[in-house]
Simulated scan of single mutants.
Amino acid sequence: MTKSEFAALHRPGDPLVLFNVWDAGSAVAVAKAGARAIATGSHSVAGAQGYADGEHMPFARLVETAQQIADAVDLPITIDMEAGYATNLADLGRNASALAHAGVIGCNLEDRLIRAGGLRAIDEQVERIAAVSAEGLFVNARTDIFLVPMKAGKDPNQVEMVHAAIERAAAYQRAGADCFFIPGLSDSDLIAQLCDNVALPVNVMRLPDMAHNAELARLGVARISYGGAPWHDAMAGVTAAAKAAFSHEG
């Protein structure tokens, strides 16, 4: 599948649903369930390798995982590369190229400052998006405007945050972004407002208090991600089964 064909899967009203995977085995399972594309989540991939999220896993491991997934499934693959595992544009471009050569068609690229906290300045993130786009990847430009406060226990469903996100979306589109990812935003009215004011396809991440997928489609969402939930659920099942097994020892 070409990048343009992958882009065509992102349709407001008929969103691409991505049930995020973490390795080749989970990718095969999700593909068999009827997926149109395969996507990883950084938290899940890192956790499956024994690392914490936040670019603690070596980038080489991420490329290796991407290659294993590409070898196992015949579907377009998009990889969460967090903030790119690079501080400068040259290294960022090389990392994007490595993923492309592993058989990846797209990536998530976030504007969070992973070590320092907060968000990158728009101008700086624009340069980074352009560097990744230049390597031929479909760039799902993620803004952490909503996720940062959500993780801090605050309500991210604020209209002023939506206005700030719309500003970033316009800049990211000019830089070559292909989709705009807004994890953390869950209010239906605010999602609809953002979709109405952003030219890029909009990607939301499923949260427990969100509307169902059909309603998200009606709001104009073009892509729905499940984030780390599938991995957490799978690991909870393994833990429960192991506890049951160990309880019968002896």
Rank of each mutant, 00 (worst) to 15 (best):
2 T>F: 00
3 K>W: 01
7 A>I: 03
9 L>C: 10
9 L>F: 08
17 V>F: 14
17 V>N: 12
18 L>W: 11
19 F>P: 04
21 V>S: 14
22 W>Q: 00
22 W>P: 08
23 D>T: 04
23 D>C: 04
24 A>K: 05
31 A>Y: 09
31 A>M: 01
32 K>S: 10
33 A>S: 02
34 G>V: 04
37 A>I: 11
37 A>G: 05
38 I>W: 08
40 T>K: 06
44 S>P: 08
48 A>I: 10
50 G>V: 06
51 Y>A: 00
51 Y>S: 02
52 A>L: 11
53 D>A: 01
54 G>D: 07
55 E>G: 05
58 P>F: 00
58 P>R: 01
62 L>R: 00
62 L>A: 08
64 E>L: 10
68 Q>A: 14
68 Q>G: 01
70 A>T: 03
70 A>E: 03
73 V>D: 07
73 V>R: 00
73 V>G: 01
74 D>E: 14
74 D>M: 08
75 L>D: 07
75 L>G: 02
77 I>D: 13
79 I>W: 03
80 D>C: 07
85 Y>E: 04
87 T>M: 13
87 T>C: 12
89 L>R: 03
90 A>T: 14
91 D>A: 13
93 G>V: 10
94 R>A: 15
94 R>M: 11
95 N>T: 02
97 S>K: 14
97 S>T: 14
100 A>Q: 13
100 A>F: 13
101 H>E: 15
103 G>V: 06
104 V>F: 05
108 N>R: 01
110 E>V: 08
111 D>F: 05
111 D>K: 02
112 R>Y: 12
115 R>T: 07
116 A>P: 07
118 G>N: 00
118 G>M: 02
120 R>F: 15
122 I>M: 06
122 I>P: 12
123 D>G: 14
128 R>T: 11
129 I>M: 04
131 A>L: 05
133 S>G: 12
133 S>Y: 09
133 S>N: 11
134 A>M: 08
136 G>P: 02
137 L>H: 08
138 F>C: 00
138 F>W: 12
139 V>F: 07
140 N>L: 07
147 L>S: 04
148 V>R: 12
148 V>W: 05
152 A>W: 06
153 G>I: 05
154 K>S: 12
156 P>V: 02
159 V>S: 13
162 V>F: 08
163 H>V: 14
168 R>C: 01
168 R>E: 12
169 A>H: 02
175 A>P: 00
177 A>Y: 00
181 F>Q: 06
181 F>E: 01
182 I>G: 03
182 I>C: 06
183 P>S: 03
183 P>E: 09
185 L>M: 02
186 S>Q: 11
187 D>Y: 02
190 L>W: 04
191 I>F: 03
191 I>W: 02
192 A>Q: 10
192 A>S: 09
198 V>C: 01
201 P>A: 00
205 M>C: 14
206 R>P: 09
207 L>K: 10
207 L>G: 07
208 P>F: 04
209 D>F: 13
209 D>E: 15
210 M>K: 01
210 M>L: 02
210 M>T: 07
210 M>Y: 10
214 A>F: 10
215 E>C: 12
215 E>H: 13
219 L>K: 11
223 R>E: 06
225 S>V: 04
226 Y>M: 06
227 G>D: 11
232 H>G: 08
236 A>Y: 09
243 K>V: 13
244 A>T: 15
245 A>Q: 15
245 A>T: 14
249 E>V: 15
249 E>Q: 13
